[in-house]
């Protein structure tokens, strides 16, 4: 089980984020839930990439580094992309939250009833 423990802990983090999105009424808390879920997924990618005893994937002019000793660099590139996408989503959600606050004077989504029915 030990070999999977980091993945499981990471999944716990993901579930906490999803739980917040499903159960909270406050817009800010929902946004926080989305952010935490994003963090968990990014962490998962880096966990998948880690090689025991590996080195970071950067060559140096002063030091001899074997390419075989490096951790998997591909997921690092993917995480960089996914972090940016996360920032974009978060910024857009914040803008919506600000506007909704301007319209309703509250962050409580159960008070926003325009669409029910």
């Amino acid at each position: 089980m030990d070999a999977y423990l980091p993945y499981v802990l990471c999944l716990v983090l993901f579930c906490i984020g999803i739980y917040a999105v499903i159960s909270k009424r406050n817009i800010i808390k929902i946004i926080i839930g989305v952010i935490i879920a994003e963090y968990a997924v990014n962490l998962f990618l880096i966990l998948v990439a880690y090689k025991a005893g590996g080195r970071s994937p950067i060559f140096s002019r002063t030091q001899e580094i074997l390419p075989e000793a490096m951790v998997d660099p591909l997921p690092h590139a993917l995480v960089l992309t996914s972090i940016v996408i996360g920032l974009a989503t978060t910024a857009f959600l914040i803008a919506l939250a600000v506007r909704l606050y301007g319209k309703y004077g509250t962050f409580d989504i159960s008070r926003m009833r325009e669409l029910r029915g």
């Binding site: 940016v84 920032l87 910024a91 914040i94 803008a95 600000v98 301007g102």
Partner: peptide, 16 residues
């Protein structure tokens, strides 16, 4: 990225 992030910041603050 720099200009984009700053634009987002300015927009959110000016409307405030």
């Amino acid at each position: 990225v720099g200009a984009g992030l700053f634009a987002i910041f300015l927009t959110l603050i000016t409307l405030q």
